[in-house]
């Protein structure tokens, strides 16, 4: 009700058009009353509680399992690995993934296993998804988005997210704070770590690959391709760990997953143990060099597709990665 135009002063009763009176129309504001500024209802303050009520959840379930799942499969042909690492995980969790594309959210929502899939909320940029009431409602309904302020740590949105996690909701969050512009990642922000520390829930690192090429930032229309989602082992906040340190651990874990997705698990573990996992944010320097380096990281063919005989002596030469 914030957009009611202020009524002009009535010049005279003679020109009154017949219109229904007060209970039938909005009340007039008495003169001399200073109206307080209306509370903003979009952006970070958009109230998404309605989108967590049973009716909305069922609508979301239908949308997610129907059109979204079909669309995701058609566009991204996802391969999902590492789900077994979630075995034994119970209760709410924070899923922290890298971010290339708008497709990441639907891809991840369809990739999450039960029981999280239908009890997860997506931390969405308040300044992007919640700019007006229509997009706000659509985001909240379709993907269970909750607005998060990405430009600054905002106490109220953090409180609200923490409250929801305490209520048993899981949270999907992109700690990079936005989609990658050039294919390389950005440094992680502390939100996920902060929430995990505050609510004492584990963080599941996730690496998404391939969506950038399908529908990256700035693309006008998607090009169907393949994608790969790699789930990592849940990270539990340690006693006395700072949010920054924990955020660093999450970033390292996602980097290791990225390494695993492009090479193989053992090489990734070895590099992770040595602290030499390739950085997600790519080399410093000019943009062409960053793009050039990106090409070298392209995922090779899946090893599973080429089998080898058991004996080491007879195994075919393995392509150098």
């Amino acid at each position: 009700m914030s957009r009611l135009p202020s009524l002009p002063s009535l010049p005279g009763a003679r020109f009154r058009v017949p219109r229904p009176g007060f209970p039938w129309s909005a009340p007039l504001v008495p003169r001399g009353y200073e109206r307080p500024p209306a509370a903003p209802h979009t952006g970070a303050d958009y109230d998404t509680a309605w989108a967590r009520r049973p009716l909305a959840r069922h609508v979301r379930l239908l949308v997610l399992e129907g059109p979204i799942r079909l669309g995701v499969r058609a566009l991204t042909a996802p391969e999902r690995t590492g789900l077994d690492r979630l075995d034994g995980l119970e209760g709410a969790a924070i899923f922290a993934a890298n971010h290339h594309s708008h497709l990441d959210t639907p891809l991840l929502l369809t990739s999450l296993p039960e029981p999280w899939r239908h009890r997860v909320l997506v931390a969405a940029a308040a300044d992007y998804f919640f700019t007006n009431r229509l997009t706000s409602a659509a985001s909240a309904l379709a993907i269970g988005a909750i607005p998060i302020e990405r430009t600054r740590i905002e106490r109220r949105s953090a409180d609200r997210a923490a409250g929801l996690i305490d209520d048993g909701w899981s949270l999907l969050i992109f700690p990079e704070g936005g989609r990658s512009a050039d294919g390389w990642g950005r440094g992680h922000r502390g939100g996920a770590a902060y929430l995990a520390l505050r609510t004492a829930v584990p963080v599941v690192p996730i690496h998404v690959e391939g969506t950038g090429a399908i529908f990256g930032k700035g693309d006008k229309r998607p090009t169907p391709g393949t994608s790969r989602v790699t789930f990592g082992a849940p990270l539990h906040p340690r006693d006395g760990e700072s949010a920054t340190r924990f955020a660093g651990r999450i970033e390292t874990a996602v980097a290791a997953l990225a390494d695993e997705a492009t090479t193989d698990w053992w090489s990734a573990r070895q590099r992770a143990a040595r602290g030499t996992s390739p950085s997600l944010s790519g080399p410093e320097g000019s943009s062409w060099r960053r793009t050039w380096a990106l090409g070298e990281r392209r995922r090779p063919r899946r090893s599973g597709s080429s089998r080898s005989r058991s004996s080491g002596a007879h195994s075919p030469a393995w392509p150098r990665i």
């Binding site: 690995t81 590492g82 193989d264 698990w265 053992w266 899946r302 599973g304 080429s306 089998r307 195994s315």
Partner: peptide
């Protein structure tokens, strides 16, 4: 993970 890392 182990299979893909070692078997090939």
């Amino acid at each position: 993970r182990v299979y893909d890392a070692f078997a090939p």
